[in-house]
Nucleic acid binder design. Structure first.
Lengths: 303, 303
DNA sequence: TCGATCATGCACGAAGGCTACACGGTATCG
DNA sequence: CGATACCGTGTAGCCTTCGTGCATGATCGA
């Protein structure tokens, strides 16, 4: 209901280039370019300036952007009030989350909502946290479950509303014959000399492991890089090193490995949060999904 | 930039019928009907219900209406910030006001702005207060000068922003030979037995005269009805009665009549106010017009 | 220097929106 | 109680709008 061209501008600010914005919105670059041009003309303000082979937002565009977020969130809120009044529980709810969430938390929400709200169609979309934010903005998803990181624009962003869901403690993955394999709990600093298997550079889980180790007073020596828990488990089983896996993550059985909880106060863990578009929590469907999600998180709480 | 269908709904709430809304928006009833239908479908909410040969707003529509005013005013505000940043003093400014204002106040604004802002085109539109509000809503005007009455939706309306401009004291119009004609000031109650010439029923000035007389403790005996000051002056000159004219109003010369100020604390007067769309005062053009208007009002202040 | 990437303009086709007209229903007046 | 005027809403047709596909100019990296 808010002029879609304002939304396009917002997406441009988030993605940087016209082409990336077009891809996120399922448009062609021509369409995005044309929309921004007409918007600029209608407003009588120059919004874009060429910068290299891309574009740069003008100060006027920054001013505009700094104010329209509240416009969008207000509208989401109004929509929610309307939906609440008319008791509309029909339609489609789209939930996106990173792999573990999509596997461990979201299915429970789907089954729960399927029984209480049979007319509601609930979809799960597995996506990395960064993609989750983009999907929320693009209205390709309504609820996101993400791992809280410094990179994520989670707190105090006028576009999103985020809520703590649960702490997923990290556990040490060891080969069965390892000297620490028999312990009931391990301090992370005891592994300072181990070779490590971590995620690829730039990926969130690698950040998390490095941060945890830094807090324990050492920098992990990277031996191998694995993107999937399965790969990491195989490398650990082969004796190539150790790695950290969240308790919620399921590891394939059959490997000669063991999972040892970590000591610490607070124990190293990843913080899982829910994210929705600001204002959209007033939609009954979304509110109920968040509620169910909290219950499931509490039930499955591994701490 | 806000979905025009929301504006259509707002106009429907203001005008009551689809046909009147269409006329105000320069549309056909079919267009208005179709817009409201698609809006209702997009929102998944029933907005209208047949009522007699017209329509009635549903509670959901009321809820919607109670919230979108702030949406529109926020957008007006943002537009103003943008215009202020880009220093855009080009374009067209449309000012509407009732007859006296259009004749006594607005021309000064036009000449003043023409010199300070040569690129700005300023238009004057004479319209009754009720039409002024409709024109503001329909974006047929940017600034309105109205007489404050009880009927006008002036104060605390989320759609408008209003500001006191000046008090225009009422004066008694008498034929030259009248017993009160020599006085320098008259109390309104001294005219309780006179035959009166007033505006037609329902018109704002009639309300004003009746209210002033009521405050003075009597109800005027209506002898004749005149819509224009000129007509009233002619009837007074003919000895058919007395009438009240605001000091700002110009009366054609040549009539054997005299104008006597009224005593009283506060002296009977009409309250002239400026009205703009809420949030639009942040547009530099409109802000400057209001400022100039205030100066002109102070200079021409008849009190 | 060559290739890749980015933004933008233009012609074309599709979709949405408004108008004009007709129709069914309802209040008002004689 | 009947005629009339008015209101809202459908439908056909037209026009504007908008997105696509392709081509062009410009810029950065190798």
């Amino acid at each position: 209901m808010i002029d879609s061209r304002l939304h396009v501008l917002r997406m441009l600010a988030a993605h940087g280039t016209v082409t990336a914005t077009a891809k996120a919105l399922h448009y062609t670059p021509s369409a995005v370019s044309a929309q921004l041009r007409t918007l600029s003309e209608d407003l009588g303000v120059v919004l874009l300036a060429p910068a290299g082979r891309g574009v740069r937002l003008t100060p006027a565009a920054r001013i505009l952007l700094s104010h329209i977020d509240s416009l969008f969130s207000d509208w989401e809120h109004i929509r929610g009030l309307l939906a609440a009044e008319s008791g509309a529980y029909a339609g489609t709810l789209r939930m996106c989350g990173f792999s573990t969430a999509a596997a461990a938390l979201l299915p429970g929400v789907v089954t729960a909502l399927n029984t209480t709200r049979p007319e509601l169609e609930v979809r799960i979309i597995e996506a990395d946290p960064a993609d989750c934010f983009a999907m929320l903005l693009a209205d390709d998803a309504d609820v996101a479950v993400i791992v809280s990181t410094r990179a994520a624009p989670s707190s105090a962003d006028a576009r999103f509303e985020t809520q703590f869901l649960l702490d997923d403690p990290l556990e040490l993955l060891l080969p069965l014959g390892h000297k620490l394999a028999g312990r009931t709990a391990v301090g992370l600093q005891e592994t300072a000399d181990e070779p490590w298997i971590v995620d690829r550079p730039g990926r969130p889980h690698r950040q998390l492991v490095f941060n945890s180790c830094a807090e324990a007073g050492f920098t992990p020596r990277v031996a191998h890089e694995a993107a999937e828990w399965d790969t990491g488990a195989a490398l650990v089983a082969a004796g190539f090193g150790v790695c950290l896996v969240p308790k919620l993550a399921r590891i394939p059985s059959g490997y000669p490995i063991t999972r040892i909880p970590l000591r610490g106060d607070p124990a190293p863990s990843r913080h899982i949060r829910t994210v929705v578009r600001r204002g959209s929590a007033s939609q009954p469907v979304i509110a109920e999904a968040l509620e169910v999600l909290k219950q499931i998180a509490a039930a499955a709480n591994p701490t």
